[in-house]
Design a protein around this nucleic acid. Structure first.
Lengths: 326, 326
DNA sequence: TTGTAGGCGTTATCAA
DNA sequence: TTGATAACGCCTACAA
């Protein structure tokens, strides 16, 4: 084991007090240039690094942010969170923060975890994903003045906190416009049952781009339910020649239905998951790495106390990845 | 902000000294039952929780373990790590540890990160994934007496540390036996170029179950390269009627090739990724949650100093998920 | 079995 | 501009 290098070691080597070393690290401009240089040399020569635990004891801040890792329920859509997490870890590292993971079975469980993480580890902030209507997590955190941002807007709630989200409606709108440009006129929509925020926005984008209501159907997320809903839609009169779907799972189902029926239907999915890449499904892609970076930016603002009085909101445009199915 | 509850608050409320409270927490058997109960009541009544930073200052241990989150390079295989991470976070939580994430561009970068995490956060241990031949990470950690386990055996290196791995050969062997039981006699193998440890083991399992060498081909991982390798294999004389693949990506490629050629070929993939689930691909599934749990078990052993003198190794059997393609 | 004293490495406060 | 001192919350050693 290497001899532990503390601020005292550095101070001795540079011939200054510990406090001066601390100042060089935290408030460099208050130290005379010459002294500062001497201390910096000592720091690099000794390979000194601030001990976070000790710093945390004094400052009450841990430079740790927490995010929940959800089980990949669907499998297909699981990798979305994965990519977001990677981006978050990268961006946080650049800003001098580390990411801690936790799991939770539901909202109540998650709130209990906040409580524990906060008192045991002095967590600096949280990043919440999968926001939804009536989300109890944000108000719990807000009531305790715990800094946080959400990836996903506060559905149905007042915008009292900063958030980052992807413009879901713009995504399906772009998909619809792409299909219209290809010459399709009867562009259908295969979405989730209404009430889910994200799902409603995706339907809304399709409707807006179409300028009217085309054929549409609802199905819970999944390949099989998507297939049967698509089958029904394709067997109606005035069946669509193209379908915009709320997810890659639904799109995959639609693809199966079209194939079974021997119909040539253009299909666009959402999320650009691995499945889409693998089978050549045209899909709407969320800028997850950028979303993660923006989350960290907002968090850093909050933590540095330089946050504007009104919460910042960031709406990122998705992009359409055109492949073989449309 | 709620008033901070420290060990002193608890001591005051229970009418004992701080030391007694500490004993109740860390060495309960040394405290008289009656006192212990009184202290415990105070702890729950006040909602007291040990402050990890302060504890860490004294003990030098952080109850934090770190694991690298890799970018989902392939997309298809990316979710494997995701599921492992989720299991790890769960298991670690149960054992009183938290998981910290980091990213790294390559082995050297990862080693630099170890150094930083160790001195700044006093990390207790690391979980390494994606072990490979000539892996410099394990020796770096071992040289510094840093506790770690690997998910993946030490390919080509002496077994000087504990590891958990999935029996890759058993997976492809089970796939091959399944195909033989279905009546196939010419069972081929589509794998990665030799030299990759995991890939070689998967080929070996196929060979072992077959009892001889059948038709085989090599391709770098990916749908397209898998498709062209499979196409070539299927166009040879004595073409296989079934193919065991080293990954779902390759399997997907093989599926495409078979369809193009109008051939009815049974296909089995590896990893049971989202793609396999979505398209009904029969695939070998790794018990990732269990692998994660075992990693935490081994780590806990190491950290509690109750590790056996020889490293423990755990080899988990994968299972075959039979779907439509075989 | 319980209590007292001291120190882990850092930074805030205040004095020089 | 720099330095001395105290304190963050906890645990180890030792004394009672």
């Amino acid at each position: 084991m290497v001899e532990k290098v503390t601020i005292a070691t550095v101070a001795r080597r540079a011939g200054v007090s510990r406090q001066t070393v601390s100042n060089v690290i935290n408030t460099p401009d208050v130290v005379r240039e010459e002294t500062r240089e001497r201390v910096r040399e000592a720091i690099t020569a000794l390979g000194y690094r601030v001990n976070q635990a000790a710093r945390q004891m004094r400052t009450g801040r841990s430079r740790l942010i927490a995010v929940r890792i959800e089980p990949a329920r669907d499998g297909i859509n699981g990798s979305v969170l994965d990519r977001f997490l990677h981006g978050l870890t990268d961006a946080a590292g650049l800003a001098g923060y580390r990411v801690m993971l936790y799991t939770a079975a539901d909202d109540a469980d998650e709130i209990a975890t906040y409580d524990e993480l906060l008192s045991a580890y002095d967590l600096d902030a949280f990043v919440l994903t999968s926001t939804h209507h009536g989300d109890p997590r944000t108000s719990w955190l807000a009531a305790r003045d715990v800094p946080f941002v959400t990836f996903g807007r506060p559905w149905g709630a007042p915008e009292t906190h900063s958030w980052v989200d992807v413009d879901n409606a713009a995504g399906t709108a772009a998909a619809t416009e792409h299909l219209l440009a290809l010459g399709h006129r009867r562009v259908g929509f295969l979405g989730w049952p209404s009430g889910s925020g994200v799902g409603d926005a995706r339907r809304e984008g399709w409707h807006r781009a179409l300028g009217s209501w085309g054929p549409s159907a609802e199905a819970t997320d999944g390949v099989d339910s998507g297939a049967s809903a698509a089958r029904a839609m394709l067997q109606r009169e005035e069946a669509p020649t193209a379908i915009v779907c709320a997810s890659d799972s639904l799109a995959l189902g639609a693809l199966q239905a079209a194939r079974e029926l021997g119909r040539d239907v253009a299909i666009v999915g959402f999320d650009d998951t691995a499945v889409a890449q693998a089978i050549g499904l045209t899909s709407v892609s969320q800028p997850l790495a950028e979303a993660a970076t923006r989350c960290v930016d907002l968090l850093a603002e909050l933590l540095d106390g330089r946050a504007p009085s009104t919460p910042t909101t960031v709406l990122l445009p998705p992009s359409l990845v055109v492949r073989k199915t449309a």
